[in-house]
């Protein structure tokens, strides 16, 4: 909407308004710049202090390594290309486990919400499985699915499945009754209600589950790899730890952090695209 000035006085008021709005925007930009600068300073201080305390011999690099050593390790790993197969395996296990677990969890949540009988029968079993620390199942998964990628995928699925099932159910349950009533009065069949109201209405809750699930999928895969694996970044961590190479452990953890950030970003982006209608989407 544009406001046009009718008198000179009006013009002055509108000018002042525009100026104060510009001021506000400039202030906001300056603040953002300062936040980023402060973050860089905090990071620089931390890394610098770490490097320096090791240099002067205040802390033992055998236990804590050193930023320069970690950087050297990563450069070496990337240059000889030895890290990529492990990154690939971990990434593949995570994505497959996440996809299967999320798909199954959403489907289970939908089925349980559509068929209360199924929900009532399955409740105690699913509750027990859900409260069980799934990582404790890792040895069994290795026996069942082998030392290869299957057991890691299984562990990831066992975590992601429940997160998505519970979030999907919460999403469907929290649906505004008014919408269901309105659509029913408009002549929606049960099937149409489900596809046009309940499922789209549950999408925000499902995305909450996906954001959590992707982090847990990575966690499960790395734990599985650390317990027993031929390949993968978790296996590398266990290997470096066993040979007392702190820079190897910390360097690999840094790579995992980058992967975790990337996966999280992918889910957030997908959410932004799919939930444009909310306007306040995070």
């Amino acid at each position: 909407m544009t406001i046009t000035a009718r008198t000179a006085d009006d013009g002055r008021v509108l000018d002042t308004l525009a100026r104060s709005e510009a001021d506000r925007r400039a202030r906001r930009r300056r603040r953002t710049a300062w936040v980023w600068a402060a973050r860089a300073i905090v990071l620089g201080l931390f890394v610098g202090l770490w490097q320096w305390t090791v240099d002067i011999g205040a802390i033992d690099p055998f236990f804590f390594s050193q930023p320069s050593a970690i950087a050297g390790f990563l450069v070496e790993e990337v240059r000889d290309g030895s890290i990529w197969p492990h990154v690939l395996v971990t990434l593949r296990e995570t994505l497959v486990g996440f996809a299967v677990g999320a798909g199954g969890g959403v489907a289970a949540g939908i089925v349980r919400m559509q068929f209360p009988f199924v929900a009532d029968v399955s409740n105690p079993f699913l509750t027990i499985l859900n409260v069980l620390p799934r990582v404790a199942l890792a040895p069994m998964f290795i026996i069942w699915f082998g030392v290869g990628e299957g057991s890691k995928v299984a562990l990831a699925v066992s975590l992601v499945f429940f997160i998505l099932m519970l979030n999907t159910e919460a999403g469907i349950r929290s649906l505004d009754r008014e919408l269901v009533l309105t659509m029913r009065a408009l002549g929606a069949t049960d099937r149409q209600l489900f596809w046009k109201v309940m499922l789209p209405g549950a999408v925000p809750a499902i995305f909450g589950g996906l954001r959590l699930g992707v982090v847990y999928a990575l966690l499960a895969v790395v734990v599985g790899e650390m317990i027993s694996a031929h390949m993968g970044l978790g296996q590398r961590i266990a290997f470096h730890a066993a040979s007392f190479r702190a820079e190897g452990v910390l360097g690999t953890i840094l790579v995992l952090a980058v992967i975790g950030l990337g996966l999280n970003l992918a889910v957030v982006r997908a959410e932004q695209v799919l939930l444009r209608w909310r306007g306040d989407a995070p």
């Binding site: 505004d176 008014e178 919408l179 309105t182 659509m183 789209p200 939930l275 209608w277």
Partner: peptide, 22 residues
């Protein structure tokens, strides 16, 4: 109804058309 009951993920046009879609 007194409350509009519009589907928040549909644009005004798609809300208007929902009955025809059904």
């Amino acid at each position: 109804f007194a409350r509009d009951g519009l589907l928040p993920w549909r644009s005004a046009r798609r809300n208007i058309e929902v009955g025809l879609e059904l």
